[in-house]
């Protein structure tokens, strides 16, 4: 489902952010992505969502080699990848409802289905009843959860999340991770970048560890 084959990434003018990264996540598999700040976790996720392109090597997502995706094909490609961003990326001048409904609006879902699905998605992140609020009126953790609701509402086959629990207390963090686990159990492929070692230990999920842009030895210990 997600395949990295000898991937290198060098940002323009920068040093190599990824060096020879190879791993594979099967359909319906879940893995954490760990590593120090600046290790290259976000870079891996950006390659999966085609926000960046690899400098060398092959990235295949949901059967599509990203090198075959032309500019015009990028939006359709991205719609199969739900993404939770490190800095939320919400529309500040739109209410929570519109933010969460955005992927459905983009794919032309009948409007009468919107209400039900937005409420269902918000319910899953514990924010039911906050549809009319604006992002600035929410705490950092609440904004993060709105971002998660937006990432899952269109039921994409691949879900990637960058520090989705960074601003959450341990209970909420556990709840969000459980949500990802539940999605994973119904077939969604999930890749989550996180610093939260405690949580990973408790969940006992597969873990890909990056150090200075390289796969750390023995990090990828297969499925749990």
């Amino acid at each position: 489902m997600i395949l990295f084959d000898a991937v290198h990434k060098r940002y323009p003018g920068g040093r190599e952010a990824l060096v020879d990264v190879s791993f594979e996540l099967a359909r319906g598999e879940m893995s954490f992505l760990t590593g120090h700040s600046g290790a290259g976790k976000s870079t891996i996720l950006k390659l999966v969502a085609l926000l960046e392109r690899p400098s060398r090597g092959r990235v295949v997502v949901n059967g599509t080699d990203v090198s075959t995706v032309r500019r015009r094909g990028v939006p359709a490609f991205r719609r199969q990848v739900g993404m939770v961003f490190q800095d939320h990326k919400l529309l500040s001048d739109r209410p929570v409802f519109d933010n969460v409904a955005l992927p459905l609006a983009i794919s032309g879902t009948p409007r009468r289905d919107l209400d039900k699905r937005v409420r269902a998605a918000l319910d899953q992140v514990g924010l039911l009843g906050r549809e009319q609020g604006f992002p600035q009126e929410l705490s950092a953790g609440e904004q993060q959860r709105v971002g998660i609701a937006r990432a899952i509402i269109a039921r994409p086959p691949v879900l990637i999340a960058d520090e989705p629990t960074g601003n959450l207390d341990p209970d909420l963090a556990m709840e969000v991770m459980s949500l990802f686990r539940r999605l994973n159990e119904v077939g969604v492929t999930v890749l989550v970048a996180t610093h939260d070692i405690h949580l990973i230990d408790r969940l006992g999920t597969r873990r890909i560890h990056i150090e200075g842009g390289r796969m750390a030895d023995g990090s990828d210990d297969g499925a749990s």
Binding site: P75, R79, M83, F85, K89, L102, P103, I106, R150
Partner: peptide
């Protein structure tokens, strides 16, 4: 600009 970026991030087509 910010709004357009977000819409493109979540897969909004050029037409949209």
């Amino acid at each position: 600009r910010d709004e357009i970026e977000v819409v493109k991030l979540v897969g909004g087509s050029d037409a949209y």
